[in-house]
C-alpha cells in the first residue's frame, strides 16, 4: 500500500470528507512525526508503536567496491518499535494462514 492508496481508501471509507482534506490529514500525520524526530523527540502511539531516534557512533566504514577505509561520521537514525497490540495482531492468526495474504502483498509491492 502506498501513501496515495492509503488516501484513496480513507476517502472512500469517509465520503463526508473532501479528498483534499483526507490528503492533508495523512500528510500532516507523517510530517509531524518526521518533524518531531528531527527535533530529537519521541513519538509514541500506544498500541501502534513508537518512533524514536538513535545515535550511531562514528566508525570506520569501507567502500564496498574498492575496500578502502572511509570514516563515517556520528549520525542519528530514525527507529520504530512496534507497539504491543499491533505486534499481537500480526500474530493472532496461525502464521501459515497468512501465506496467501503475504504472497498478494509481495506481488502488489
Amino acid at each position: 500500500m502506498t501513501r496515495s492508496e492509503l488516501i484513496s481508501e480513507l476517502s472512500s471509507a469517509n465520503p463526508h470528507l473532501r479528498g483534499a482534506d483526507v490528503e492533508l490529514i495523512v500528510n500532516t500525520i507523517f510530517n509531524e512525526i518526521a518533524a518531531a524526530l528531527a527535533r530529537g523527540e519521541r513519538v509514541e502511539l500506544r498500541g501502534f508503536g513508537a518512533f524514536t531516534v538513535k545515535r550511531r557512533d562514528a566508525r570506520l566504514g569501507r567502500n564496498p567496491r574498492t575496500g578502502a577505509p572511509v570514516p563515517v561520521d556520528e549520525k542519528t537514525v530514525p527507529f520504530f518499535k512496534t507497539g504491543k497490540e499491533l505486534r499481537e495482531r500480526l500474530n493472532r492468526e496461525a502464521p501459515h494462514r497468512g501465506t496467501s495474504a503475504r504472497a498478494a502483498g509481495r506481488s502488489k509491492s
Partner: peptide, 27 residues
C-alpha cells in the same frame, strides 16, 4: 480520524501488506 488512519495501516499490515510512504519510509 487519526485513529482511522492508524487502524487502516494496522489492518493492511495485519493482512501481510507493506506500506510505503514516500519521503517517510516503508513498513
Amino acid at each position: 480520524l487519526l485513529e482511522v488512519v492508524l487502524e487502516r495501516m494496522a489492518r493492511a499490515l495485519e493482512s501481510g501488506n507493506s506500506i510505503k510512504i514516500s519521503g517517510f519510509g516503508t513498513f
